[in-house]
């Protein structure tokens, strides 16, 4: 939103911090280079990868991405602030995106959003205290034929009725997807514990047996 000031709560930049981006992540960013004429064009893929790996894109990550892409860190900041998808501060393990388009609203989208807020006790762009859920809204998720709808990470929940919300939110597998996924923007093979540690999160006990690639902990 160009005209509305949103506190992105980005943590201050610590120049003395340990490097965040591991050689594996760096290598994966570099693997996008042959696709484009310029290195800068790999910025969006790099941001997706970094956010999927660490949960959000901190100032430090921006500065390190800038170094890999050979651009100025302010260029990265300039781009990142335009797109609503990227988080510059820690988000929950699962991001709930509720659609607020006209189709969803005339089918009960506003009531759905109100119910999700009530159940989680958070507002938009807020995260539950246990770090489980963050809530955002988005303009039209293009599932208008199944409105009202919401995304939990990559999983689309269609025709969500207000009375279904509680059940969906209490289901630990509510972000499980049932189709084969491409790992193009997934974190490079890292142990889940490493990924969680890098993102400053505690690993879920249930998920600890799964690998980071097949069971993406951060989601998008």
């Amino acid at each position: 939103m160009s005209w509305k000031v949103l506190d992105r709560m980005t943590p201050a930049f610590d120049a003395n911090a340990e490097p965040l981006i591991t050689p594996e992540v760096r290598e994966k960013i570099e693997s996008y280079f042959p696709r484009y004429e310029t290195k800068r064009a790999a910025l969006l893929p790099a941001l997706h990868l970094v956010q999927n790996t660490y949960g959000h894109v901190s100032y430090q990550a921006m500065s390190e991405i800038a170094e890999v892409l050979e651009i100025h860190p302010s260029d990265v900041l300039d781009t990142i602030t335009f797109y609503t998808h990227f988080w510059t501060h820690k988000k929950g393990r699962k991001v709930i995106t509720v659609c607020r388009s006209l189709s969803c609203e005339v089918c009960g989208g506003a009531a759905l959003l109100k119910e999700v807020k009530k159940q989680l006790n958070v507002g938009e762009h807020e995260t539950t205290p246990d770090g489980e859920y963050s809530l955002v809204t988005e303009e039209c998720l293009a599932v208008c034929d199944h409105g009202p709808c919401m995304l939990i990470n990559e999983k689309m929940h269609k025709r969500v009725r207000v009375e279904d919300v509680e059940k969906i939110l209490s289901d630990p597998n509510n972000d499980k997807i049932d189709y084969e996924r491409s790992d193009l923007f997934d974190p490079p093979a890292m142990k889940p514990a490493e990924v969680y540690a890098a993102a400053g999160l505690q690993a879920h006990k249930k998920d600890s047996s799964n690998s980071a690639v097949s069971e993406k902990p951060q989601g998008e």
């Binding site: 997706h48 988005e138 293009a142 995304l151 491409s182 998008e220």
Partner: peptide, 13 residues
């Protein structure tokens, strides 16, 4: 668009 998760995976495959 990034909200097309399922479509991305299908198309990439």
């Amino acid at each position: 668009r990034v909200e097309f998760h399922e479509q991305f995976h299908i198309l990439q495959k």
